[in-house]
Simulated assay, not measured.
Amino acid sequence: MTPIATTTSSAASLALATLSYGPDYPRCQLLVESVRQLSQAPVQHYIIVDQRDYSMFKALANPSTEILTVESLLPSWIRRVPLVNRAWLSCKTLPIRNWVLQQLVKLSFARCASETITVFVDSDVAFIRPFDLTPWARQDQTRLFRVPEFYSADFEPLYRAAYRLLGLEGYRYGMARPNYIGNLISWQQSNVVALCDRLEQVGGRPWLETLARSKTLSEYILYGVFVDQVLGEAAGHSYDWSPLCHEYWRPQPLDARQLAEFFAAARPEHIAVMISAKAGIAPDRYRSYLERLRVESLSRQHQEPLPPLWA
């Protein structure tokens, strides 16, 4: 992993970052194939897996795909406990839940990335249309997924935690707030560095240690609240909530007809699809749909430009 970038160039560079693990290998394989086939600009794709899964995933490595380990992005005081799957051992805090640790890894990667923009791509996502940097970076502005008015009681602890960690006042229960959680989420590397600095100023200890003590956390909400309420216009983000990804989230599988209808519903502005791994649908059941959409998109690309993703 390269150290924190020090370049002052305004030219955007893009890293795709995917956290994955053994059971998701077939889905991650589809994702890597789609990036290789459809990326229209230099894009480095980083697959981040536990050390115990590295030997499996290293087969996906190529000049534009690098396999990293979770352990390489964490300090020595955080380690996986053998035979324990739901938490990691910490010498400075209570054991860290897997869900929280994944978010620490995302922040650690984006903070250290040499690329100016990190786009997080789940391993159950696959691209279906040609893409370059323009969905995420235009005219020195980086896209930040942000739904202006949103409310879910399930998100209240996540917003409360973000306000506390950032030292912000004004949190009120039951209020509609912007939502920053979605797929293909893009962050600016310089803002992640500033976020970590803020966490250390407020918490009085290294940022990783502060977050490792959290019982609940949303990295996307934490970053979004920081951009909105601390950095403001200086963040260099443009807000957008148009979907880039056609998604299926339910934990129930789809039959053949439903699967065909799902892919037929993909709109021109969707550059990717996501079928949640929790749906229990074997990737081989929809590989042909992905391939057909890619072929159709590439053939149309030579006849007419792709629809704009931003207004």
Rank of each mutant, 00 (worst) to 15 (best):
P135I: 05
G204A: 08
G167W: 06
F131N: 02
W136M: 07
Q139H: 14
V147R: 12
N183I: 02
Q141N: 12
D154Q: 14
N183Y: 14
G167A: 09
A212Q: 01
A194P: 09
Y163E: 07
L208K: 04
N191M: 10
D140V: 09
A162W: 08
W207H: 07
F150T: 02
G167S: 07
V192Y: 03
R198D: 00
F145A: 04
P178I: 11
R198Y: 03
N179A: 10
R172D: 12
I181R: 13
D140H: 15
L144W: 01
L166W: 06
L211W: 02
Y163P: 00
A153K: 13
P178D: 01
D197H: 10
P130C: 04
E169T: 14
R146M: 13
G204R: 06
T210M: 00
T134D: 15
P206G: 00
W207C: 03
Y173T: 08
L195C: 00
S186Y: 03
Y151D: 10
P178M: 07
G174Q: 09
R146W: 04
N179P: 04
V147H: 12
S152Q: 15
E156H: 03
R198N: 05
S186Q: 05
Q188F: 01
D140I: 02
F150H: 11
L199S: 03
Y173H: 13
E209W: 02
I181T: 13
Y173L: 15
